[in-house]
Design a protein around this nucleic acid. Structure first.
Lengths: 158, 158
DNA sequence: TGATGATTGTTCTACTATATAACAATTATG
DNA sequence: CATAATTGTTATATAGTAGAACAATCATCA
């Protein structure tokens, strides 16, 4: 009754590899899923040479033009020290512009350039297509909403 | 009817920061949730100085004693070159032992040491507690099962 | 059998992402 | 005003990951 695999006659037992001790863990599957989704995202944006962090920064700047660097960085969970190089890259590619606001000359206000505005329209389309693909894999928008809700519950503190 | 925020009298518009352009993306929320869960995992294992990759390797070795390094590494999605240092660490702490099997002297068969067996019992308990905490946040085992199913759908190729 | 190719573990190197400390310029606060 | 806090920046350190190369070993097959 407990014997699931009767020993082969006279050969080595050779039981199958058990990975369920890790694949059954929420955090482990979460990580594997995140890696898989990111790899596909990166593949779709490879022609544009745009990393996930680049896209998320551009999207936030588009939605919040004039925001300070630290506001965008904090919203993305990126340390301001590490955000400098990211914005340098986007500025070097002519997608983002830094302007010093008169009311706080410590900060840099971020704006999309004209080229940035044109480019993010393309990027948003690529992202929307990929999102639709993810929703398909999940089984529809209802499943997507449910996943987003469940993931949101894991974000609460403590 | 469309005016959600009537302009304050004579002051700057100052609309609120819009983060939904990224928080509404499956991949983005997936990553944030994964980071949050891992941070909590790391915090709970801080006293044991054990990283997620360390635990997952120990768990797989416990469930599959005598497996080759490359088998454990592949199951975890870790390149064999990078897996060397990880096993070196666990071996240096006396938790894992490398043995050369007679039938294939290229490979190293991995086993838990006696100390490793004792330690992983502790680690498994910490992990089980944390898993129960995650299940609580999700709203029960049914919600957990649903999340695991949804995440599994994101893992399929293409 | 012997020649050739594949596998395994290992080292080295490089690149990305992230974390911390320090600093100057500026702003906020008592 | 004096002091503290904020912002951007640079420099540095640490993980995690990826690729190339190598020796030892095993598999294949003509």
């Amino acid at each position: 009754m407990n014997e699931q695999n009767p020993a082969p006659p006279g050969k080595a037992p050779r039981r199958r590899f058990r990975a369920d001790v890790v694949t059954g863990i929420v955090g482990y599957r979460l990580r594997r899923a995140q890696i898989a989704v990111f790899q596909q995202f990166i593949a779709r944006f490879a022609a544009h040479d745009l990393r996930p962090a680049d896209y998320s920064a551009l999207a936030l700047i588009e939605a919040n033009p004039g925001s300070k660097q630290i506001e965008i960085a904090r919203a993305l969970g990126i340390k301001r020290a590490n955000f400098v190089a990211l914005i340098n890259g986007l500025e070097g590619r002519g997608l983002v512009e830094r302007r010093q606001p008169a009311d706080d000359r410590r900060s840099q206000a971020l704006y999309l350039t004209q080229r940035g505005i044109e480019q993010i329209a393309v990027f948003n389309k690529v992202q929307a297509d990929f999102e639709a693909h993810c929703i398909d894999k999940l089984g529809g928008v209802a499943a997507r909403d449910q996943l987003m809700d469940l993931l949101g519950r894991l974000l609460i503190e403590e």
